[in-house]
Amino acid sequence: MFLKWLIMRSWSLKSPCIEILQILVEIPLIKIHSSVVSVAPSFSVQAFRLEGMHTFLYRLNAVLSFALLALAAICIAASMTDMIHKSNPSVDIKVLKFDGLREIYGNDEARVALNISADLSSIFSWNTKQLFVFVAAEYTTPKNSWNQISLWDSIITAKEDAVFQALEYNKYAFIDQGKNFRGLSFNLTMYWHVMPKTTMMYIGSKSFTGFKFPDNYF
């Protein structure tokens, strides 16, 4: 009987608080009603009971809801600490040279060498899983009020890797929607998309202005 009780208990032992409360209530009752009944059998009856307030379902439900509530609270707390987290990233982007400007299928395409250096280590907080860093060229044309072309990107998963310098040609095709590149001025913006371990994501950025395409195809 006791073994059965133990098995049942270990199976349904989800909310010790309720169990302890129940024991506290049960023991005096046993003492009052019968002096011969030992403690263990009364528990076994208790464990097999399937109706009433203290069924397995009720306990499971209580434990699961409490666990979800606690998890939600922790997630919100993590987001809150991210909001008050202060950072001062330093970024520098330079255009080293243009290595081609041509027309391709009715659109302009440029090839450009960039010098990107940054220290983004202060952005990392305890809830940061990774930074997705990318540099986008941004410009306006007579047809489009806004153009954004990602030229280079990198995934940074550790704070130690957040200080970097990259001397690279554009990783992705630098192609306009139309033929507007010649002599056009554009901005280069570094964006860092902060991907958390949980909850809110956010984007930070720093812009650099005053870049200009060559005046002719070459």
């Binding site: 990602s150 929607q177 964006y191 994501m201």
Partner: peptide
């Protein structure tokens, strides 16, 4: 650019979650 969007493509059942890398907005 940089946002992660969920998009549907005609003729595909399952939507895709990917990052925006280029944007051209018509004036």
């Amino acid at each position: 650019a940089g946002e992660i969007v969920v998009y549907n493509v005609d003729g595909r059942d399952i939507p895709i979650v990917h990052r925006v890398i280029q944007v051209h907005q018509d004036r």
